[in-house]
Amino acid sequence: LQLFIKTLTGKTSTVEMEPSDTIENLKAKIQDKEGIPPDQQRLIFAGKQLEDGRTLSDYNIQKESTLHLVL
């Protein structure tokens, strides 16, 4: 599924993920695209901070969801 990652600067990146992927996997993919180390990334979806060990489906993240990346 395609996700949009929006940064505080207003920049939006697109990443392709599976519902079974963990937040950790997602942060690794963001690191590949943006060069931001996972330990500096905080991802927010629906007002919640996402935890590394959980999966996208745990948070009911659907295709074309927008996640907010806070550093």
Rank of each mutant, 00 (worst) to 15 (best):
Ile5Thr: 01
Leu71Arg: 09
Phe45Ser: 02
Thr7Asp: 10
Gln41Trp: 09
Leu69Ala: 02
Leu26Tyr: 01
Asn25Ala: 14
Lys29Gly: 02
Val70Tyr: 14
Gly35Asp: 05
Gly53Asn: 12
Gln31Ser: 12
Thr22Tyr: 07
Lys6Glu: 07
Gly35Arg: 05
Glu16Thr: 13
Asn60Met: 08
Glu24Thr: 08
Pro37Lys: 07
Glu18Ser: 13
Glu16Arg: 11
Gly10Lys: 04
Asn25Arg: 14
Val70Glu: 10
Ile23Ser: 00
Lys11Pro: 06
Thr9Val: 07
Thr14Lys: 10
Asp39Met: 09
Gly53Leu: 08
Ile44Gly: 03
Glu64Asp: 14
Met17Asp: 00
Val15Tyr: 15
Gly53Gln: 10
Thr14Pro: 05
Pro37Leu: 06
Leu67Arg: 01
Thr9Tyr: 13
Glu64Pro: 05
Lys6Asn: 05
Gly10Ser: 03
Leu71Ser: 08
Ile36Asn: 02
Leu26Pro: 01
Lys6Pro: 01
Ile30Asn: 01
His68Phe: 15
Ser13Pro: 02
Leu3Gly: 01
Pro37Ala: 08
Ile23Lys: 01
Asp52Trp: 03
Thr22Cys: 03
Phe4Met: 07
Ile23Phe: 02
Leu69Arg: 00
Leu67Cys: 01
Asp52His: 06
Arg54Asn: 09
Leu50Lys: 00
Glu18Pro: 04
Asp32Trp: 11
Val15Pro: 00
Lys63Arg: 12
Thr9Met: 11
Arg42Gly: 05
Ile23Glu: 00
Asp32Gly: 08
Leu67His: 02
Gln31Val: 04
Lys48Tyr: 09
Thr12Ala: 06
Leu8Lys: 11
Glu18Tyr: 14
Val70Ala: 07
Lys27Thr: 01
Val70Asp: 06
Val15Ala: 03
Pro19Cys: 05
Gln2Tyr: 12
Phe45Gly: 01
Leu67Ile: 15
Met17Cys: 11
Ala28His: 12
Lys33Gly: 06
Phe4Asp: 03
Thr22Glu: 02
Ala46Tyr: 09
Ala46Asn: 15
Ile30Gln: 00
Lys33Phe: 10
Pro37Met: 06
Gly35Ser: 05
Asp21Ala: 10
Lys29Trp: 11
Pro38Lys: 15
Lys63Asp: 15
Glu18Thr: 10
Met17Val: 13
Gln31Tyr: 15
Pro37Glu: 06
Leu26Met: 04
Pro37Asn: 06
Lys48Phe: 10
Gln41Pro: 02
Pro38Asn: 06
Thr55Phe: 08
Leu1Phe: 14
Thr55Trp: 04
Phe45Glu: 00
Ser20Arg: 07
Gln40Trp: 10
Glu64Trp: 15
Leu50Arg: 00
His68Gly: 04
Gly47Ser: 04
Glu16Met: 13
Gly47Phe: 05
Phe45Tyr: 13
Leu56Glu: 00
Ala46Val: 06
Gln40Val: 10
Lys27Pro: 01
Phe4Cys: 05
Thr9Lys: 11
Leu26Glu: 01
Arg42Gln: 10
Gly47Pro: 01
Asp58Ala: 06
Val15Lys: 01
Leu56Asn: 01
Lys11Glu: 10
Ser57Thr: 08
